[in-house]
Simulated assay, not measured.
Amino acid sequence: MRISERIFLVGSGKHGHEMTHRLDCNVYLLDGGSELALIDAGSGLAPDQIVANIERNGFDMTKVKKLLLTHVHGDHGGGAYFFHKEYGLEVIASTEATPWLERGDKEKTSIGAAIAAGVYPEDYHYPPCPVARSVSEGDRISVGELELEVLETPGHSRGHVSFVLEHDGVRTLFAGDVVFAGGKVVIQNIWDCFIGEYADSLDKLSRRRFDRLFSGHGPFLLSEAWRHIELADAAFKRLDIPPNL
């Protein structure tokens, strides 16, 4: 599904558009001209559906060179190994989350807790995946003729990053699970979800005045995304909690 000149939605599960496996996050394809990149990888369950959507939009998987992960929860990072193994994608993750992905660490990725809670099936497997590049605040990632900035945005999880694309005068945020349309967030009873860090991340994002918001679940926003981000930030500043997705 083409959602802007350079961005396509190629995966989305039960909390989004039901395009692919129900446990998938929103998976975006970024067209940088000479090369393409995926932002997040989905759950790794039926990843061929994501591939089919990429090809249905007229792209060849041989042009997809990079996989940028916002964080390594199963619905975002579980498919990383498939895309690395089958198509040779260069996997990029935050410096903090890199060892968890490379070990397939069930505790640090909260997979164990999610299976125990019934979020994932008991036989869900999170395969270890090598990381080609670890990134931190302020790093830049080239995708063909485009360049993205890395922002560290913990709160929903440790090792969470967001990606900023500024192109043709439009400022776009690939937000993973840090903020959603309507000023919503995802606060969960897991080891690395910290309200104080969440509030700091929303304060940081609200200062950037983003035009477009492409989150890890739910609808995407094509204008005035800053209004939605400000709603979440304002709730934290009132010592309140924004609505949960």
Results as ranks from 00 to 15, higher is better:
residue 144 G to F: 04
residue 9 L to Y: 09
residue 196 G to S: 06
residue 63 K to M: 13
residue 93 A to L: 03
residue 111 I to Q: 05
residue 186 V to P: 00
residue 137 E to H: 11
residue 60 D to E: 14
residue 121 P to V: 09
residue 71 H to L: 10
residue 203 D to M: 04
residue 14 K to H: 14
residue 155 G to E: 01
residue 151 L to Y: 04
residue 29 L to H: 08
residue 123 D to K: 13
residue 119 V to C: 11
residue 155 G to A: 01
residue 92 I to R: 10
residue 101 L to C: 03
residue 117 A to M: 03
residue 240 D to G: 00
residue 9 L to N: 12
residue 150 V to W: 03
residue 95 T to A: 14
residue 66 K to F: 13
residue 236 F to T: 02
residue 192 D to R: 10
residue 211 D to V: 03
residue 136 S to E: 08
residue 51 V to Y: 00
residue 124 Y to Q: 00
residue 94 S to E: 02
residue 95 T to L: 12
residue 47 P to R: 04
residue 233 D to Q: 11
residue 243 P to I: 05
residue 5 E to P: 04
residue 141 I to A: 09
residue 181 A to R: 13
residue 112 G to M: 12
residue 58 G to M: 02
residue 132 A to F: 09
residue 220 F to C: 12
residue 121 P to A: 08
residue 184 K to W: 06
residue 222 L to C: 03
residue 182 G to S: 01
residue 12 S to V: 12
residue 135 V to M: 04
residue 209 R to W: 07
residue 125 H to G: 03
residue 147 E to R: 14
residue 145 E to V: 05
residue 166 E to Q: 05
residue 57 N to E: 14
residue 40 D to N: 15
residue 8 F to V: 00
residue 90 E to G: 07
residue 56 R to K: 15
residue 47 P to D: 02
residue 54 I to Y: 01
residue 154 P to Y: 11
residue 110 S to I: 07
residue 5 E to T: 06
residue 127 P to K: 01
residue 190 I to W: 15
residue 220 F to D: 15
residue 167 H to K: 14
residue 27 V to G: 07
residue 202 L to P: 12
residue 95 T to Y: 12
residue 41 A to M: 05
residue 86 E to G: 00
residue 229 I to M: 08
residue 212 R to D: 09
residue 173 L to I: 04
